[in-house]
Structure formats: structure tokens, C-alpha cells
Design a protein around this nucleic acid. Structure first.
Length: 491
RNA sequence: GGCCCCGUCGUCUAGCGGUCUAGGACAUCUGGUUUUCAUCCAGAAGAUCGCGGGUUCGAUUCCCGCCGGGGUCACCA
């Protein structure tokens, strides 16, 4: 049975690269009727970040990727020790007593000589019985794997094919650290085997240490799973995504107001394309057609502009009701402690803005909420864009006189607004239909005045929204309410 | 620097020896619809397939070299 896994280390927030792997792993598992598991690789006690595991699960939940099993490596220490000992017994690994100082000095010398920094196999010649005595005597040690000399190591990557390494370029890697924790190399290989992983999907940064992993499998006499090294998602400059730039974190997308399905759809198109050339498709559909072997080996650049376009497409396709649901939960998320505790991201929303917007939405009746969705879902790329456009709903705006009198004189505007105001006052029932009637009337007013149609709406818009940009005017007026509208128009 | 991977429009990509005067999407530009913004519609421009050699009747597709980009050289993953 097919079984895939992600193996993130809890060192921060859910990384986009981890999400990418989770997406591909999960899709592949579904397609092959297999399982997908999560394994927390927390063998580096120094880099452990509080809350990182939690953030990982929350992130996966947000994108709705579920898993069948979960493991934590720090709870499996005895397993790794047993396997390291086995390697010692088989003569494929050895105890190393070199001190930190000696290794540092060694590296310095090597870099001075401009040779690749590698362990000089100093302890490899120590007799095993003597080494065991030193270990028993309490001397500090690590365990290193023996790399065979003068040989070629052939590994196979599903999308890159065979890759050959010369063993002289492979270091006698530490597999057990001084503190009794295994390094990635041992832990991951042991776990992948024990957990019966059939396809190992991992980042391309592992290719270099691939020969060590292959050797480990050989030493244990285990069958290798299929290895797939993903494309490396880079930023627009072609370098690894950095935390500084924000969008390496999945949380960044959530905070900006992207839809999880759009993010998933977008990253699925990196290093892969739909057989029918489709751009927009659901995860469900993706999991029916995706295969690891169709992945390309390039390092795609993450184009935020296209990401925004795609998110806009998803936003447009949301029903008005769903739009409100999503918007509401986004606002709540931003207000929540998750937001407060997270890394800060640049945004033009202040913490209070989220609350104002949520309160505003809650103050509307269901029908009006849907109208709000209707006039907005077509014109934003992500929820964050909502504020500038709908600012006037939640806070006082200032009037730019220059904007107001851009095409017409102060007096002309004044008289036109007086007319409009009196029409509003005498509207009768305050509903969308009557307002639409007034809208038509206002269009006719333009020809009566000899103005362009846009010119009769311009001052209304500027006075109402404090901006030349707003959602559709009369819908906005309806949502804003009679009293507040008249007050705004009167200034 | 050693080793490894990669190299098609600005970006994501299709292409798996002839169908390619290289297709699609985003972005860009032009025009149209429109009361703002946006949407939407139509169209345009944009890639001598990194470069140079081979192999072949024929290379974007296969091989080699070069160049360029990236990755990696930890008791981090």
C-alpha cells in the first residue's frame, strides 16, 4: 500500500515548502488509495520552537489536509539507539571521540587549504573493543557511519533518474549525537522503513546527502522506498524563500486573506501542470490526476501577482453567503490570539480595523450582508483589499475638497447636492428598489444639467466614501443607511 | 572552491525526433462595455527553445563541452 509522509521539524511556522509537500503527498496517497502521515522531526533540541507543532497542525487544518497517523521522533529515541548499535555491530558505524575543538580546528585547516571540509576519519581506526571500553568508561562520543572508500554510490530519484556520487565526496556522517539523539539521517531512514513509507517526497536540498541514505538502507539490508525530490520553490529573485519576505510562511497567506483552496491550487501548478492545461481546479480533481513522476525538476519562482489573480478567481466564484462566511472567519482569525502571537506582517489594517469591520458586518441583517458580499467579491483579490474600498463603512473619512471640485465649481456641486439630498429625504421607503429609482433619476439629471453621467455621481461618491473609489454607489448608500448617508452628504 | 541538480516568452508552464513560422495562463499594451474601482469581452506585443559542437534525412526534443542559475558541504533538518 502506498504511504507518504511529511516530516517537518518544529522550528517555526508552517513553511510553504512543507505545505507543498503535504499537498503532493496527500494527493498521491488519495489517488493510490494509500495513507498519508505526519512525523514531527524534533531531534534538534536546540532549534525547537514552542508552539511550532501546534502551528503546523493548525496550518494543515486550514488547508483541510488531514493525515492518518502521526509520530514524534523524540519519543522514539530507544529505536534509533538500537539501530545505531546494530550498525556498530555490523561494522558499518563507529564511535567517534573527537572533541568539538578538534573538529573546528580541522575544518579551519581544511578551508585554509581550500579542500572540502570533511571529517578526517580519525576515530575510524580505533579498535572496536577499545572504543567500547572508552564508551563504558563514560567518555563522550558520537556515532558515525562508515562510508566505503573508492567506490561509486548510485542513487535513484524518480524525476531526475540515476545520480552517481563518488564515495570520496561523502562524509562519515554523525548518525548519533553526543546527547543520545539521532541525526536526521538515521532517524528519517529508520522511521521511513519502520513506518512503511513507500514514497519519500522531500526537498531537493537532500540530494547531496542522498548517498548516505542509500548506504544506510544497504547497511540495514532494507528495500529502498521511491525517492522524489521536489522542485525548490524560490522567490522572484530565484533564491530560497526567506522568512523576511513573508510568504514563506503559510500563515502569511491566511493573514493576507487568501483562500486556502486558492493557495493549494496555485502551488500545485509549480513544477507540475494539469494534463488538460487547466489552471483552476479543486484539490479533489488534483488528487485524481496528480502523479509524482510528472513533477519537473526546475526551481519555480513564486509569482505573487499570479497568486493574487487566482485568489481573485476563487473569491469571485464564492456564493455571497460563502463570501460572508469566509470573510467573517478571516476577521475572527485576525482578531484571535493566533494573530496576536504571530509574527508581524506588513498590512494596512490596524488590529482595531478587523474588529471594526467585524462589528460592522454583524450589525447588518442577513440580506444586507449578502448585498455587501455582492458588491465586493468581484473587486478584491484578497480579503485584505477590502478595507481601502470599504473604509467609510467603518470609520470617519475626510473630504478632499480638491477631489470634490475636480470638474465642477463649488457652487455647482453645492446646488447639485442640494437637489440630491432633497430627493433622498423624499424617497419614501428606504429600500434598494427606491434607491435604484433615484439612481435612474440621477442619470437623467445629468442630461438636464448638461453634465456627463460620471460627473453627477462623482461628488456623491467623494462625499460618501471620502474617495473617488468605492463599491457600487447606491448599494453602498443602502447599506450605509439613510441617516448616515445624509450626514455624510451634508458635509 | 569540490560535488550535485536545473536551463522554453518578464513569470508559471505545454512540448517527450518531423504536427513548432513553439501552445496556454499571469503580467504588459490597445480597443470595447461601464457612474468610480474592479469585472467582463476582443485584440496585440512578447521565446532565434542559454551558447557551441555532435548524432540524425530532420532537433526545443538524444549525446558532449561551455556558460549561467540554484542546492549542498554541521553532534540543523
Amino acid at each position: 500500500m502506498v504511504k507518504t509522509r511529511i516530516a517537518p521539524s518544529p522550528t517555526g511556522f508552517l513553511h510553504l515548502g512543507t505545505l507543498y509537500q503535504a499537498l503532493l503527498d496527500k494527493a498521491f496517497a488519495i489517488r493510490n488509495n494509500g495513507k498519508f502521515i505526519v512525523r514531527i522531526e524534533d531531534t534538534d533540541t536546540n532549534r525547537y520552537v514552542e508552539g511550532a507543532v501546534d502551528a503546523l497542525y493548525k496550518g494543515l487544518k486550514w488547508v483541510n489536509i488531514s493525515f492518518d497517523e502521526t509520530y514524534i521522533q523524540s519519543e522514539r529515541l530507544d529505536i534509533y539507539k538500537k539501530h545505531a548499535d546494530e550498525l556498530i555491530e555490523k561494522g558499518h558505524a563507529y564511535y567517534c571521540f573527537c572533541t568539538e575543538e578538534r573538529l573546528t580546528k580541522l575544518r579551519e585547516e581544511q578551508s585554509k587549504k581550500k579542500v572540502p571540509p570533511m571529517y578526517d576519519k580519525h576515530c575510524r581506526s580505533i579498535n572496536i573493543d577499545e572504543a567500547k571500553k572508552r564508551v563504558d568508561a563514560g567518555e563522550k562520543f558520537v556515532i558515525r557511519m562508515k562510508i566505503p572508500e573508492n567506490t561509486k554510490i548510485l542513487v535513484h530519484d524518480l524525476i531526475r533518474g540515476d545520480i552517481e556520487f563518488d564515495s570520496s565526496a561523502v562524509d562519515d556522517q554523525v548518525i548519533m549525537k553526543g546527547n543520545g539523539f539521532p541525526t536526521y539521517h538515521l532517524a528519517a531512514m529508520v522511521d521511513d522503513h519502520l513506518m512503511e513509507i513507500t514514497h519519500v517526497l522531500r526537498g531537493p536540498e537532500w540530494i547531496t546527502s542522498f548517498p548516505k541514505h542509500k548506504l544506510l538502507y544497504d547497511y540495514f539490508d532494507w528495500e529502498m522506498p521511491v525517492f522524489v525530490h521536489t522542485p525548490l520553490i524560490t522567490d522572484m529573485s530565484g533564491a530560497k524563500l526567506s522568512k523576511r519576505k513573508g510568504h514563506s510562511s503559510v500563515d502569511w497567506f491566511r493573514r493576507k486573506g487568501y483562500l486556502p483552496e486558492a493557495v493549494l491550487n496555485f502551488i500545485s501548478l509549480l513544477g507540475w501542470s494539469h494534463p488538460e492545461g487547466k489552471e483552476i481546479f479543486s484539490f479533489d480533481e488534483f488528487s485524481k490526476v496528480f502523479d509524482f513522476k510528472d513533477l519537473s525538476a526546475v526551481s519555480p519562482k513564486f509569482d505573487l501577482v499570479k497568486m493574487e489573480w487566482m485568489n481573485g478567481q476563487y473569491l469571485q466564484n464564492l456564493s455571497d453567503e460563502e463570501f460572508i462566511n469566509r470573510l467573517t472567519s478571516w476577521l475572527k482569525y485576525c482578531i484571535s490570539s493566533e494573530y496576536q502571537g504571530a509574527t508581524e506582517f506588513e498590512t494596512h489594517w490596524t488590529p482595531n480595523d478587523y474588529k471594526l469591520m467585524l462589528n460592522f458586518l454583524n450589525s447588518l441583517n442577513d440580506e444586507t450582508k449578502l448585498l455587501f458580499a455582492e458588491i465586493n467579491n468581484q473587486r478584491i483579490k484578497k480579503f485584505e483589499d477590502l478595507l481601502p474600498l470599504n473604509n467609510f463603512f467603518v470609520k470617519d473619512t475626510e473630504i478632499n475638497q480638491e477631489l470634490l471640485t475636480k470638474n465642477k465649481s463649488k457652487e455647482e456641486i453645492k446646488s447639485h447636492m442640494n437637489w440630491f439630498l432633497s430627493e433622498l429625504e423624499n424617497l419614501g421607503d428606504w429600500n434598494l428598489e427606491s434607491l435604484k429609482g433615484l439612481e435612474e433619476k440621477t442619470v437623467k439629471r445629468a442630461s438636464e444639467l448638461g453634465w456627463k453621467v460620471g460627473e453627477v455621481f462623482h461628488p456623491i461618491r467623494v462625499l460618501l466614501a471620502g474617495s473617488t473609489i468605492s463599491p457600487p454607489l447606491f448599494e453602498s448608500i443602502f447599506i450605509f443607511g439613510k441617516e448616515k448617508t445624509i450626514k455624510s452628504l451634508n458635509r
